[in-house]
Write a protein that binds this DNA or RNA. Sequence first.
DNA 1: CTGAAAGCGCTAACAC
DNA 2: GTGTTAGCGCTTTCAG
Lengths: 328, 328
Amino acid sequence: MATIKDVAKLAQVSVATVSRVLNSNGYVNPTTKERVNKAISDLNYRPNDVARSLFKGRSKMIALFVPDIMNPYFPELARAVEDVTNQHDYTFVLCNTDDDIEKEITYLNALQQKSVDGIIIVSSTINKEHIQHINVPIIALDRILSSDLSSVTVTNREGAKEATEYLKEIGCERIAHICGPENASNTVQRLRGYLDVVKDEDWFLSSYVVSGGYNFDKAVEVTINLLKDHPEVDGIFAANDVMGVGVMKAAQSLGLRVPEDLSIIGFDGIALGKTTSPSLTTMAQPIYDIGARAAEILIEHINDKELLRKREEFTVKLIERESTKVRR
Amino acid sequence: MATIKDVAKLAQVSVATVSRVLNSNGYVNPTTKERVNKAISDLNYRPNDVARSLFKGRSKMIALFVPDIMNPYFPELARAVEDVTNQHDYTFVLCNTDDDIEKEITYLNALQQKSVDGIIIVSSTINKEHIQHINVPIIALDRILSSDLSSVTVTNREGAKEATEYLKEIGCERIAHICGPENASNTVQRLRGYLDVVKDEDWFLSSYVVSGGYNFDKAVEVTINLLKDHPEVDGIFAANDVMGVGVMKAAQSLGLRVPEDLSIIGFDGIALGKTTSPSLTTMAQPIYDIGARAAEILIEHINDKELLRKREEFTVKLIERESTKVRR
DNA sequence: CTGAAAGCGCTAACAC
DNA sequence: GTGTTAGCGCTTTCAG
């Protein structure tokens, strides 16, 4: 790899001049400039970003923490973040945390040592204490981590409420809820939204709420038990689509017809919901948009350390598909 | 952030000594060592990896190119690569290329400027010329790019053959194939495997092969047309699972029963195939394993520049699920 | 066993 | 307009 010195030598100028044309910084005679540019292309010279980073203390890298990229909610988020990141000439680092605080701390340290410029975090385990020593801008995405961090989330409670009300409106009389892992902030909000609607119904039982941990297999399992214990249930609101599909699988394995015997609504709006038969009704998040927005806000923070904390909430939207049906 | 100088000052030694204890390099008196370690922890000092990289010319970063992480085949691959990468203290960079050669070249240059240590590439567009100037180790994954690159792939042709034979064995008499994008090496191999089995059948028609571009919506569309033109088709081998699920969706929308009227087999073995009803029979790849192996081989190349090119092929395995059924 | 100093490649004062 | 030079933070000869 050619260095700036090689270019300077070939163009018969000093390295400072080369640096000037490289960064279009300060005055440089058009003729010299041309000579330098020729040398650059002759040598196929590319500036060394590591050296630049060392000088500037910034690396032009942004990292995203997700629990597990294999969970189908995250690829779209990751894609959005990468796109924005890339548009702004940052390099995109992906970290799978498994929601394991040990791994998260290890990543946090490693990234800081690499001078990453900012981090976007989806986590249920990180809290204020873990990040107070970190002097890199951090944005919370999908779930809130700490009151003093900028965040991009969706209207979880309102959306959950709307989903549950929808089930009621189409005629469901016993509505159960498969919730996510207890420690995630969005699990709590979605559960609240559900309870807002059903807690005063005389049929409501606390055993209508079971945890599926945002996980397909777990959701299948708990739904089978739920439906065996409570055959009267005719509507299920799953806190995410992966579990919604699990609920469908469980119902079908029990010989129930969806939506005739059981209506199902999910949350998230991932592509998976379109592939099943019947396809899954859901409260769709603008997943790509929230990922992209988080990246934009992060970049604002990077460019302006004094920027005030921002909290943005995107609304979710009902998408009626085939897993729900008006009953008479 | 504290620097090595601060540590040196506090421990009353030179930076060289600090460096020595940092890297357990050369002799250093146990007492001094302890003093240095105390200073390190007192200052909560972490070495600056950028400075290290500049000196060493290596960045401890590995990149993975995928066409699009939103395609459900790639998250598992990415996860595997990230896990191995992480175990070896590398940072994982993810690049979505959209199989766009322009983007790929841009990434290649940007990564080289950042001194990435190695790149794993899934691509249908990159070829020998594009990478001959790159002096960073590169491994091809899933698809072969160039004869002189190490690669990790699966037995595409054999697997396709087995899938098609399986359909024949269970009694399908008219077997069609939904293939991938023409330029991908694995599309070609899977198509060949299919043809190996059917080309001499007297019922075989070239219009039994249609391209679904490895894409769900496209597969739905072309399958509908195929099934309308050729209602006699009673078995379909889709070149990947995403298309397999699309085929199922198409068949169901046409009122066909799967597997009674139409048996479907996919390729890949992604989790999606388990969620549908009926679940999808498939030729499963050891996706995680090939991703992990590619990362391991890459690291071998990084550690030994003279390492000979390796080409590893993993075998695929039939997983019978509900979308295929023996017919009488 | 430890320190001084050169240098990785680049940028940004500061001179001229 | 252009060159000289001092670092950015670290590692590694080379002395001692």
